[in-house]
Structures are given as structure tokens and as C-alpha cells.
Design a protein around this nucleic acid. Structure first.
Lengths: 193, 193
DNA sequence: ACTCTTTATGTATATCCTGACATATGGTAC
DNA sequence: GTACCATATGTCAGGATATACATAAAGAGT
């Protein structure tokens, strides 16, 4: 089983979905921490069905093409539950901006500072989007969030990861941009100073 | 040109290295944010040489096999300088632990809490390692760190990224472990409370 | 002698993933 | 009518990456 397979099972454990639906979920939501194109999803669904982890039924639609709606099987749910508590296989982190940073001493200072200002903005925009979602969740899911075995808590928990990740990244970009603009590392202002 | 190609150029811009040396650097140091196996490095070096970005000379050694030592060319350095200031191509983040978190509501609570406690430890260990390096750099490179166009500053800047990343990740793991152990989300204690 | 480790350089196979190609239904805009 | 868009499902070619296979020099340990 591939990680993508478990990503799909994770979505199907919450609701029945077509391949197209899964593609949409992978673009937003779950896609913030695991994504795939439809060219990967359709073959993976076939493999999951071969393995007995999911099954599908064809749903005829008017005004739209027919679709295959997939649901998770008992075997699929068991496999997912088992996978969740296994330590993740350590993957090497690949961060292109940090790699560029390693060679930033060679770069034109003004252009380099601009690069980090732009990346700071990108992460701040993503952060703002996450914060909106968070406010919505904390309002809408007040009850569900009191228990860690609700899917709402799980969604909220991943969102919190996204928020602290983007906040941290934006803050580092700010430090980089400031340092380059001054020509020397700026003081630590992380905790407000 | 691939990102790995620029990673190699970034290393060669600092010192001449053999394929084997590059492999070592990719295991530690640079490998914290970009890594590759030797099976990828050797072919990439050949492509870089084809493109005129690097050239090599054979160095005969006693008591060891001969080696090919690569150095970056003027064209390679130009390409690297240009690449550094270009915005990175946005790659989808793939974080298996966060993906597991999305399905954590299905998991056995005790085992899930244990998972996050273990991951917290892993990130704290990495953080401790980075903090050691940071202390060493701030002592050893006092002079070099006053200027952002020194390779030492570039190394220091990437290290700071690693530090805040690990600190943030460990803190989130703590929040997860605590929340699951209590059966409900724990209060925000991020800023000390 | 034999094995193991480090240095040193490669190739081969398989998988993951992206981008492009391909097809079909039916609505909306011009 | 025609072009375009959203829905819907697939295939294919190529590049990136990991794991394993393969070879070789020389020291260290048994």
C-alpha cells in the first residue's frame, strides 16, 4: 500500500466519493499536506479495489456523465486504523527556498531581499486563509471539537499544524529579508521586540 | 537544469568536491533541506559537465581509489546566481504525519498519543543538534556573520530555518499528544501559559 | 585466508509523480 | 453553430527518486 492509498482511504472513511471528488479534495483541504493529480488517483483506486480496500458502484446522473462512487470496506478501514498509529517513514525534507538560501551569499542583495519579501507574503496569505478556516471551525464545531475521536477534531488538528507552519515560515522569511536589506543578520525579534 | 543540479552547484561554489564528497554533504548539512543518493549524484554530475556547468580532473591517491574532483565553471556560477533569486517553483507539501493526523479520530487513543510523543522526541533531538551547531557557528563565525554575502551567513540562515521548523513541529506534536491523552484539545500553551 | 569497513564510481530496476493526451456529457456565452 | 467550461474517467511518456546490484582499492580485525 502506498501513502496515496491511505490518503484516499482517509477521505473515504469520512464519506463516499468519486475519483473526481477525490481529485477536488486533493486540490484543497487534504491537499495542503498530501496531494495527487487525477492521473494518479484513478489507477490508485483500481489498485485499492483489487486489494479489497474499497468498492464502487456506478451512479447514473442526468445532465452529467455517470460516475463511480467509491466506499471503503471493512478491510480498508482496518488497514487505515493500523497505518495511522505506525510511525511515519522518515522522508528527506526538500525545501527549494532553503536550498536557495544556502547560496544566497552569491546573489544580488536587492533581488534576494525581494525574493524573501515575496515568499513572506505568500506564506502570510496562506496563513490568513488558514486562520479564517480556524475561526469558522471553532465557531461551527464547538461541540465536535470537545472530543478527539471526531473527524472534526482531526481536521482541526491538521489545520493547527498548517497555521503554525506558515506562521513560522513567514517569520523566518521576514528575518531573511530584513537581514539582507541591512547587510547583516537582524536581531531576534521573533517574540516581539 | 534540475533542482539537484543547483544543489550540487551550490556545494561546488564553496569548494571543489568529488561525487563521493557530494554524497556525504547530502547526508548531513545540505541534506537537511535537500538530499540525494549517490545513484542520482553521479549521473547528474555527468549532465552538469555535458552542459558546461562543471568540469572534473582525476586525482590519483595512494591507499585509496582514484577520484574525480569537480569544480564549478564560470557558466555554472552564473546559472547558480541567476537561479538563487528566482521564486521557487511551488511544490506540494507532503507530510505523512499530518496525513495520519487527518485520520487520527479512528485510532486507538493510547497508541496515537504514543505516536505523537515519539515524534515530538524525534524533532526535539533534531532541534538539540541544530542548537549545538548554532552555538558553535555564533562563536566560531562571529566576524563572518556580520555580512550577508559570506557563505557562513548563508549556512547560518539555513540553520535558523531548521531550528524554527523543528521547534514548531515539536510544539505541535506536544499539543497533539496532550490533546489525545486528555481526550479533548488542550489549551493554547504555545506562548507560555 | 576471510570478512568487514571506508573510500570511490557507476548501472539497473521499480515506483512515484507531473504534464500532456484523449474522450464524453451537457450547460452557458457569443 | 461554435467555443468554452465543469463534470467525469481514463492512458501515456518522461523525469525524479529510492533500492538494489556491481566493481574495485586498501586497511583492520579475526
Amino acid at each position: 500500500m502506498t501513502t496515496l492509498g491511505y490518503a484516499i482511504l482517509g477521505l473515504l472513511s469520512r464519506e463516499d466519493l468519486s475519483g473526481y471528488d477525490l481529485k477536488q479534495r486533493m486540490a484543497g483541504r487534504v491537499g495542503y499536506f498530501w496531494s495527487a493529480k487525477h492521473s494518479q488517483i484513478y489507477p490508485e483506486l483500481a489498485r485499492l479495489e483489487d486489494g479489497g480496500y474499497v468498492k464502487h458502484s456506478v451512479v447514473e446522473q442526468r445532465e452529467r456523465p455517470d460516475k463511480k462512487v467509491y466506499e471503503i470496506t471493512a478491510e480498508g478501514l482496518d488497514a487505515l486504523k493500523e497505518w495511522v498509529i505506525q510511525p511515519p517513514v522518515p522522508r528527506p525534507t526538500r525545501d527549494e527556498l532553503t536550498l536557495k538560501t544556502y547560496s544566497v551569499w552569491l546573489a544580488d542583495e536587492e533581488k534576494a531581499a525581494q525574493l524573501f519579501r515575496e515568499e513572506k507574503l505568500r506564506h502570510e496569505e496562506q496563513l490568513a486563509h488558514y486562520e479564517e478556516l480556524r475561526a469558522w471551525m471553532e465557531g461551527e464545531w464547538r461541540e465536535e471539537l470537545t472530543s478527539t475521536n471526531s473527524p472534526e477534531f482531526a481536521s482541526y488538528a491538521t489545520l493547527r499544524r498548517g497555521i503554525s507552519y506558515e506562521r513560522e515560515y513567514a517569520e523566518w522569511c521576514r528575518w531573511m529579508a530584513d537581514s539582507i536589506a541591512r547587510g547583516e543578520p537582524s536581531e531576534k525579534r521573533e517574540k516581539g521586540g
